[in-house]
Computed example of a mutant assay.
Amino acid sequence: MTVSHERPTERMADTAEVHWQRWTMDMQIIVTEPDAIGAARRCVDTELDAVEAAVSRFRPDSEINTLASSSGRPTQVSELLAEMLSAALLAARQTDGDVDPTIGAAVIALGYDRDVTALDSSVPLATTVSRLATWSMVSFDNRTVTLPPGVVLDLGATAKALAADRCAARVHAATGAGVLINLGGDIATAGSAPAGGWQVLVQDGDDEPASLVVLSSGAAMATSSTVRRSWCRGGQLLHHVLDPRTGQSADPVWRTVTVAAASCFAANTVSTAAIIRGWRALNWIRAQGIAARLVDSDRIVHTIGGWPNDDTCRAR
């Protein structure tokens, strides 16, 4: 899963907001109708409960872990997991396999087998597993999924982004209010924005470069980071964005990549693939005409596609 310190810069007039922690990350809801904040929180909690039950690798009873033990047998999944898996496979197709949901066993081999706050750096680094499969080997027909034996899915990045999109839509449908959902840096909006738009500060830590972004109604944003969700194992500093071709943490060319798009899922697909592509990501993103901001290992900021050099942009 991806994390940043994206946050509204100031309390916007005629809005209400709530902050809390879940999945070891900061969560936030802002609504344009203060009376709707309670209903909004309930909607989001219900949605996140369902997402966790479907795709959490850290819950033994999750659907994703049931699939991992299916030994290659066709398995019917819930509508939610089917949507999450379909999105993950779409991201894989769109990125030529840079975002691949079949990396679960490699992630576990690197030691990320529980909540990141509970990882033990004294445990030796396991021998990295060889790739058992790629995304193209996942058989998916409507709600029936067949995985090659031994494959563990990890839908972390795409699932959290899609959850942000679903939460924003659900809150707006239930309350009629304009809403911004921030799930650990994955931001989605729905309904009308407040006057002046949704003002968001993009900064992955107090000592990192900062950018003020104004999101208009319905816009979304995602940040992928090699700084957050990192751990030590066997004397190596590792992070959670893996290169599917090596089974190792991607070379940290970029500290963070932030992308603005029409959906959080679309933004996250590009930001995650950019971490894996390294310097090649600049031309790839530029060719798509997408607004993006990349902070390299020397904290130098690179902007593309309408993200001005003054580090302030209006994403639509």
Rank of each mutant, 00 (worst) to 15 (best):
A262S: 10
V171R: 00
L162F: 05
A274I: 11
W198F: 10
I181C: 05
D207G: 03
Q236R: 15
D251F: 13
N268I: 09
L183F: 03
A274R: 06
S225Y: 01
A164C: 03
Q248V: 02
F265Q: 08
G176T: 14
P252Y: 07
L237I: 15
V214Q: 14
D243G: 05
G178R: 07
A190R: 04
P244W: 02
V145A: 15
A210C: 08
A163E: 12
C232A: 09
N142A: 15
G247M: 01
G191A: 01
K160A: 00
V253G: 00
S216N: 15
D154T: 08
A219D: 08
S263L: 08
V214L: 11
P149D: 12
I187K: 00
G196H: 08
S136H: 11
A260F: 10
A190N: 02
A177P: 01
W198A: 09
T272K: 13
V202G: 05
G178E: 13
A260G: 15
A274W: 05
G176V: 14
L153A: 13
W231E: 14
P209G: 14
L155H: 09
H240L: 13
Q199N: 06
A261S: 15
A159M: 12
W231A: 13
A195D: 06
A266Y: 01
V241E: 07
L212H: 10
V213T: 14
D165C: 10
R233A: 04
A193K: 06
A168N: 07
S211C: 14
A220G: 07
V213Y: 13
V259M: 01
V241L: 14
Q236N: 13
V171F: 12
K160F: 02
F140K: 05
A190D: 00
V145I: 15
A262I: 01
A220V: 05
T189Q: 04
